[in-house]
Structures are given as C-alpha cells and as structure tokens.
C-alpha cells in the first residue's frame, strides 16, 4: 500500500474517523497508541492526524478507566436546582474516590461534567450509556448495587 500513502486522502473516508475511534475505544477500553495506529491504518491516515483529531473530543480517553464511568452533571441549572454538589459528595463518600479517580477494584470512575441536557430533572448522572434523572441517595445506592451485582 506504499502508493496509497502518498495518494490524496479520500475526504469521505476520513469522515469515518470519529465512528472508528468510538469502535476502537469500545474494543480496547481506551485509545491506546496501538488503537490509534489501528484506526490510522484502516482509514489511510497518519497516526498523528488521528491523534490530533481524537484529542479534540472529550468523549475519547487515552488512559484506562474503571468498568463503569459515572458522570455527574454540575451545570448551572443542576447547581441551582440543588443537589448536584450533594450528589457528587455522596458518590465521593460511597465510592471513596474524588472526581477523576477510579476505585481500587477498577469498578467505577467518577467524573463531573457540564450540561447533560436534563436540566428539568436534576440531579442527574450518566453511567456508561444510561442517563439517570431526578436522583436521590436511595436511587443511587440501588443503581450502584445493581452494577456491582452484574460485575
């Protein structure tokens, strides 16, 4: 594929880079240099081009995270409605970790994020692909327990 390297890059092919990065992240858990290289090869891009693009977007991670990533919304509306900070505090106490940290057993990573577009139903958190709204400490306990149960 030597010739392909110097060919004008197909712009429509490059358009698949975010999709490819999502797939790679799902497979590898995070975007390791190997994962980036794999995407680059498939799309006929330079690895540094893929890396440059990937680092722009907050949903891509370049370090391993826990099995479940908990993201608590602390946007303005959630803060005003009350409870966003208390939810973070409660999770910190329950999990024994601060924002940006992962539990020792590798189960949970805690993060705080800006607006999740659920301003009408705060406090709100997202765990992996699921959004949880109008949270109470009881609900949080139940959710965490269920996730621990499924391992």
């Amino acid at each position: 594929m030597e010739a392909g390297k110097f060919a004008v890059q197909d712009p429509a092919k490059r358009a698949m880079v975010l999709t490819a990065l999502f797939i790679a992240q799902e497979q590898f858990g995070y975007l390791s240099p190997q994962a980036i290289a794999r995407v680059a090869e498939r799309l006929n891009m330079a690895p540094e081009d893929v890396y440059e693009t990937a680092t722009f977007y907050s949903m891509f991670r370049f370090k391993p995270v826990g099995r479940h990533v908990i993201q608590v919304c602390e946007g303005l509306s959630c803060h005003l409605a009350g409870g966003a900070e208390r939810l973070v505090e409660y999770l910190q106490r329950t999990l024994g970790i601060g924002p940006g940290e992962t539990t020792l057993d590798g189960m949970f990573t805690l993060q705080t994020v800006q607006c999740l577009a659920s301003c009408g139903t705060s406090p709100t958190m997202r765990i992996d692909d699921t959004l949880y709204e109008s949270l109470t400490t009881d609900k949080v306990d139940m959710i965490l327990q269920a996730l621990r149960g499924e391992g």
């Binding site: 358009a15 698949m16 975010l18 999709t19 799309l43 440059e52 693009t53 722009f56």
Partner: peptide, 23 residues
Amino acid sequence: HRGAGAYICGEETAMIESLEGKR
C-alpha cells in the same frame, strides 16, 4: 453521525469540520 463531546460542534462550520472527520 455521532459527535464526541465538543460544545463548539453545535456551531455550523465547526459541525461541518467534525463531519469531515477533523477537529
């Protein structure tokens, strides 16, 4: 097409860049 977490991509020209697979 899924974005990947960038508020600025709601701006139309940034969105087009992102659709093309760029920052």
